[in-house]
Design a protein around this nucleic acid. Structure first.
Lengths: 232, 232
DNA sequence: TTTGTCTTACATCTTTGGATTGATAAAATA
DNA sequence: TATTTTATCAATCCAAAGATGTAAGACAAA
């Protein structure tokens, strides 16, 4: 049986009709891609995605009507395996970060050479994630900055280190929303003992109540799973 | 006044003496780099970093004695502006992610061509962050996976959407550790009103007390800065 | 206009939380 | 061995939090 090389199906979403036409022509020249639809509306684009199930979507994310990032997110939620490449006029690190976070498989600037667009599509079609080197650098600046605060705040002094093993157990249960009775039951000790521990925890963490204790714990890397803040 | 083109100072840390020697010779051939030190020990490497203040450190992260990632972290904490490039034998996405998270300016496989190493050093020396395309792809697989769980868990139903604007304000203050009096003072309303709001919040979030409400809020993307869990 | 939601507010009552003091036994440490 | 830390428990007291019901004025939608 002879094997046919299937063409990848592409959907274009861009509110700029001129740019849309240009990209369409460009892609049509490539033998390995078929443009199955074009639209200037993000909402229509989402419906076309459901209908045509393209392999790849090129999505302009600088649209006034609807946020392109939001559109990407909605398409990702459909879980149709559609690979979305973000097209943008800006190499803003925050934009790049957010696009990649919500699942874009690539991010290309509109000013980039057409060859780069095709290359990105080739890579993405092959199951990879593609970001131009320059944008990768931008992304990582943002990415690493997100973690810097954490490192610096941690380096001050972590009052959690003063807690005893038992106190950590109690705090762990506090961070799960337990009250005295719940903690006492889970640790098989009396409620008054829990009170003693909790009071000692308050002293050591220099807080006034359980909510503040829980917040301190979560913000200072309590437990095995460290939670990290990333502004999105 | 005549300007001299300064050579970049490089420190090599690699527990494999053979590899260390090879890399040293390779770099010495380059006119723009000076190897100011080599060592097979991570701990000694950290001390050499303090002493010589190199521009760049090539750090093997697959060392038995001390974890190379930990060493990178310690060097980053020194805040000397030293750019660390991770050298590794593995293109494991988790390793790449962790290295970049703690501030590595690059990640190179030992099996890669020497030209790529030099190119990475050039880029990093110029203040950029460099990851080979293949590793970038790996990184993003891991990165995007970290957020997938969040998206699915969020898609269940976010009870926070039922809160009124005022209730959100109150909850915001709750998540900052305020008690009734504090909230009342900050919103210029009476304490009893705050109680009413808080009780309504409990109903809507289906929780029993403020700690649980705060935990629900933090775990369900409350506020403008959404906190995201990334296992590290 | 009527209906409904939101925000504000108060009263009352019960439960929970937090502070303080004191005490005992085991375990770790000097 | 002597001393300190840790974990356990209790009693008491006051403050804070939480549950419940009621209600008035603002405002928007039907």
């Amino acid at each position: 049986m002879r094997e046919f090389k299937r063409k990848f199906r592409v959907l274009l979403i861009d509110d700029n009709a001129d740019h849309l036409r240009g990209v369409k022509e460009l892609i049509t020249l490539e033998s390995s891609y078929d443009v199955v639809g074009t639209t200037t509306s993000a909402n229509i684009g989402i419906n076309l995605a459901k209908k045509y199930r393209p392999d790849i979507i090129l999505m302009d994310i600088n649209m006034p009507e609807k946020d392109g990032l939001q559109a990407i997110q909605e398409i990702e939620k459909l879980n149709l395996g559609i690979k979305v490449i973000a097209l943008s006029g800006y190499d803003d690190s925050d934009l790049i970060f957010r696009a990649m976070k919500i699942g874009a498989k690539g991010y290309i600037l509109k000013t980039m050479a057409s060859a780069q667009l095709i290359y990105a599509m080739d890579e993405v079609a092959a199951g990879k994630i593609y970001l131009p080197t320059a944008l990768t650098s931008r992304f990582f600046e943002y990415f690493q900055n997100s973690f810097k605060e954490e490192a610096s705040s941690t380096s001050e002094e972590n009052l959690l280190t003063y807690l005893t093993a038992r106190e950590e157990e109690v705090l762990e249960l506090l961070t799960q929303g337990n009250n005295y009775k719940g903690i006492a039951g889970k640790l098989f000790i009396s409620e008054t003992t829990v009170k003693t521990h909790v009071n000692n925890i308050f002293q050591k963490l220099q807080v006034n109540d359980r909510t503040q204790a829980v917040l301190y714990a979560l913000n200072n890397g309590f437990g095995n799973k460290r939670r990290t803040k990333i502004a999105v």
